[in-house]
Amino acid sequence: MIIALDFVLRLALWIALAPLLPGIINKVKAWVAGRRGPPVLQLYFDLARLWRKGVVLSDLASPAFLAASAVGWVAIAAATTLLPVGPAGASLSFQGDFILLIYCLALARFCTVWAAMETGSAFEGMGSAREVSYAVLAEATLIAAVLALCVQTRSLSLPGMLAPATGAGAILLAGGLFIVLLAENCRVPFDDPNTHLELTMIHEVMVLDHSGPPLAVILHGASMKLLLFALLLTQAVLPTGHLAPAWAGVAIGAGVLAVTVGVGLVESLLARFAFRRVPLLLTMAFLLCLFALLIAWKGGAA
């Protein structure tokens, strides 16, 4: 009973806190541009508004269109239950949980692509094609990063992998994971969450035909995914395992905030890359993680 309550409470916390991140990013962007910007809680208002609105469905969409949004959200939520948060640990952890986490995110991607293709729109097809193609490189990078952590700590579950200090490769790992965070969450320089020029987008273009509650679910899922990656990055780099629980919590919070602000700064200072440069950047991220892996391996042996 306690376990169930714990599980539900954690999930509720995830659900409640996640929409803060896009708000902070937007605030940073506004601050850099010298504007006042939307309130930090803007996404909450948007979600509430969308939840009340009606749905316009494409004539071509099957019942699976709505189902895909819901399943995609559940998949991301499942991934969040596997990610430990500092001293509080994870709701669920077992040997090989990181594989389930990565594949839950993949399931979410499959659902988004499925829903996008339901509408028969060429633009949404284009976005889906980009999403699945860039995910190939992002997934290779992510597995290399997890391998680096696994080799470093000789642990096979996320709580063991993320707690101890990372070694010399931490900077490389941080760089690689940050690039993956940007790519997987469709931020600049891979995608521009603010533009409405469909030809140039990845994720936004896939949800063009979503409206009302399904769109709210998709947006909320995206914010949870952002928080997930920010937490993963922070804990992979910061040696929180050596701190007292309270300080570890503070450090993780500060880390996530730093990552979020970093995303905002990148978004303010960089322009979106041409699509042909995207594989190059992701390859760099992959190599960063690969070298972090080699350092963890050889550094540990020496």
Binding site: P279, L280, T283, M284, L287, L290, F291
Partner: peptide, 10 residues
């Protein structure tokens, strides 16, 4: 290309 030369260098 950039990606092949990068992989080659790595």
């Amino acid at each position: 290309g950039f990606v092949p030369s990068l992989l080659l260098g790595a």
